[in-house]
């Protein structure tokens, strides 16, 4: 479904991704873990098409469509969704107006008419309830004055409404208390289906107790250095990432001696 091949990317002339490979099949949940600065958020930005992120080499396709050729909005309409680590506040644009514009853009891409305001309000209210946000959050400016947890739940609400094919959750657990974490996890689990895939980017095992991944990958210095099943997350939780440094030191020494 989503295929990332040998992806090299830089921001402000600094290369962050250095040969990232990832194959995601329909219905799979992949967790990506790794230390700070490994390139986890960069991967989400590059795949979703953020300005300022230069692809130097490699390919990203979604169901065979070359994403790197598309504008950010076209990637979203192709079925890609990034839940932001730091959702952007947009005062003056209501949450409802924003989400309706997004859903209508998606519908237009799928050859459908825009949803009526009345029907959309109903859908949005249901989604609001599902992520345990009061419905008056629909009237407020996009993420304006929301707490960290409310912003993360607002991201999940958008995911529920847009029904994407591939969701990248960028540290959707950071800054959440246990209740909010469960709301986020329940939102994700309710959307798991044989034709929808997830990439869960996280620092901690905690979220993966609630969203069971099929695969766990360790991202370090811009590439996947280790992959395994769900038990790898527990291992990482116990050991930390110190072993990565040693491995890199050994690798560097080998390169030098060679």
């Amino acid at each position: 479904m989503l295929s990332i091949k040998n992806l090299h990317a830089s921001v402000e002339d600094k290369t962050i991704l250095k040969g990232l490979d990832l194959e995601i099949k329909p219905g799979e949940v992949h967790a990506i873990m790794g230390p700070n600065g490994a390139g986890k958020s960069t991967m989400g930005y590059v795949v979703s098409g953020r300005e300022g992120y230069e692809v130097e080499e490699g390919a990203v396709t979604l169901n065979g469509v070359d994403l790197l050729e598309l504008e950010a909005e076209e990637r979203a309409r192709a079925g890609l969704f990034l839940a932001f680590q730091y959702p952007v506040e947009i005062p003056g644009v209501s949450n409802l107006e924003f989400m309706k514009a997004a859903v209508d853009a998606q519908r237009e891409a799928d050859g459908e008419e825009p949803v009526s305001s009345k029907d959309f309000l109903k859908l949005a209210r249901e989604a609001c309830k599902q992520v345990h946000l009061p419905v008056d959050f629909l009237k407020r400016g996009v993420n304006e004055g929301f707490s960290g947890g409310e912003k993360k739940r607002n991201e999940i609400m958008q995911m529920l409404l847009l029904k994407p094919k591939v969701c990248i959750l960028d540290e959707s657990d950071s800054g959440l208390d246990i209740d909010a974490l469960q709301v986020v996890a329940e939102g994700v689990n309710s959307q798991r289906s044989p034709d929808r895939s997830f990439i869960v980017v996280t620092h901690y095992q905690r979220l993966l107790d609630h969203i069971k991944p099929d695969f766990v990958h360790v991202l370090s210095d811009g590439k996947i250095v280790k992959s395994g099943d769900a038990s790898l997350a527990q291992e990482l939780e116990d050991q930390g990432y110190a072993w990565l440094k040693e491995q890199r030191a050994v690798g560097a020494a080998q390169e030098q001696s060679a």
Partner: peptide, 17 residues
Amino acid sequence: YYLQSRGISRAQAQVML
């Protein structure tokens, strides 16, 4: 970028902002 990442065209996003 946030609006575009939700499928909203750049032109429409500019108008909204």
